[in-house]
Amino acid sequence: MDVLEQTFTLHVPSSTKNLVMIRDFVNRVAEQAGLEESNRSKIELAVDEACCNVIEHAYGNDVSKEITVRATFDGDAVRISVIDSGAGFAPDEVPQEELRELIRQRRTGGLGMRLIKTLMDEVRYEIEPGRRNELHMVKKVRQG
């Protein structure tokens, strides 16, 4: 059965207070797309992690900034983009250290990107620092 592509967009101030709203938004879109609960949970967590990175790193906890979460689905996949206009970064240069090493260094972060890559089927960045940074994530509706 063909499913008409539908797009939903949420604009929110860059604050951890809004993570609840962001998770609720992507969860409901994923539900409409027909994803079962375990995959909805994965999308929810991946988008939470992506937005936390924007809030902390791209915008430096400046709540006057805005995050856009765009969610599209058709019969094949749910596609989520997290968009900001803050400081960009070089995704390939972010060190991916082992958990044991992070703990040894008393680090409390560094796991968000790893989680996103583990939870989603495709992850792609488009970075234009200070202008427009987009993280595109795809979760297939039917695995295999």
């Binding site: 992690e49 958990l99 703990i103 040894r104 008393r106 680090r107 409390t108």
Partner: peptide, 13 residues
Amino acid sequence: SSAGLGVFMGFIE
């Protein structure tokens, strides 16, 4: 989320 896991990481050593 990883922010919560980070708290566990920060204290264990």
